[in-house]
């Protein structure tokens, strides 16, 4: 029997090892420990929330997964490969700030990843253009496709940033407090939008990791909540959320999980 065929080759991604695997990961800036040691794994098909106090190292963890910063020790892998090298897996990071280019319209901002992927020519083709238009529609910005960022409200800018992140067609979507700066009402609407995109299956998304400060948001959105300690972020608890969507905050199970998460996150 061929060992490779049954997945026993050590270099092949282990099917049950998870899409993102952190094994005793430590992130350090100079002599400040920003996160870790922390271990967790994210399976294909999972929506994960990282919940932790301000400054505990959540953004740093996402940056490390995106391959933007190195880890000091431990092991971090994306589909079995080091972050930034996993060519087969695209990782899309939506930053805490919208980071739209002020000289580009909404649509031009959204096609940026496609433009960059074409290399030196920078000319996108018709299917990419229609994909961008579809995304603009999906995030509800059709009327503002040709508007410039300063003409958009904060919530619209965040939606444009989400569409741009999705334009790169990521397998793994990293969201850093995606709608954190917005009012409750807009935030809920956008979270619903995000869930519907995730559930629609219209994208190649395999996993979502979302950073949040909000316990209700984490319970409403995710399959599992990783509750983190204050800096340097370590795993305090993993709260599974086995509720079907749409989730009703008035539901008794919702309230119970909310309580469990709250207790786990309470500073001791």
């Amino acid at each position: 029997m061929n060992l490779r065929a049954v997945g026993l080759d050590s270099r092949a991604p282990q099917p049950d090892a998870g899409l993102v695997v952190a094994d005793n990961v430590v992130i350090r800036f100079g002599d400040v420990d920003a996160a870790g040691p922390i271990s967790f794994s994210v399976m294909s098909g999972e929506f994960i929330s990282l919940l932790g106090p301000s400054g505990c190292g959540k953004s740093s963890l996402l940056r490390a997964i995106a391959g933007l910063i190195p880890i000091a020790s431990g092991r971090l892998s994306i589909a079995g490969q080091p972050p930034g090298e996993a060519a087969a897996m695209r990782v899309g990071l939506m930053f805490q700030k919208p980071l739209l280019l002020p000289w580009r319209t909404t649509l031009q901002n959204i096609v940026l990843p496609a433009e960059i992927a074409t290399g030196s020519s920078g000319a996108i083709d018709r299917s990419e253009r229609s994909q961008a238009l579809e995304l603009v529609r999906m995030v509800g910005l059709s009327e503002f496709a040709d508007a410039y960022p300063h003409q958009l409200s904060g919530g619209m800018q965040q939606r444009a940033a989400l569409a741009r992140t999705l334009m790169s067609d990521p397998d793994i979507l990293l969201l850093d407090e995606p709608f954190g700066a917005l009012d409750e009402f807009t935030r809920e609407a956008l979270n619903e939008k995000l869930l519907s995109i995730w559930k629609s299956g219209a994208t190649r998304l395999k996993a979502v990791i979302m950073v949040t400060h909000s316990i209700p948001e984490a319970v409403a959105m995710s399959d599992r909540i990783l509750v983190l300690s204050s800096r340097p972020a370590r795993l305090l608890e993993v709260v599974p959320v086995r509720l079907s969507h749409p989730r009703d905050p008035a539901n008794a199970d919702f309230a119970r999980i909310l309580g469990v998460t709250r207790a786990a996150a309470r500073p001791s």
Partner: peptide, 10 residues
């Protein structure tokens, strides 16, 4: 952050 954005887009 802008430079990181461009890095994530490779």
């Amino acid at each position: 952050d802008f430079q990181d954005l461009f890095r994530t887009m490779r």
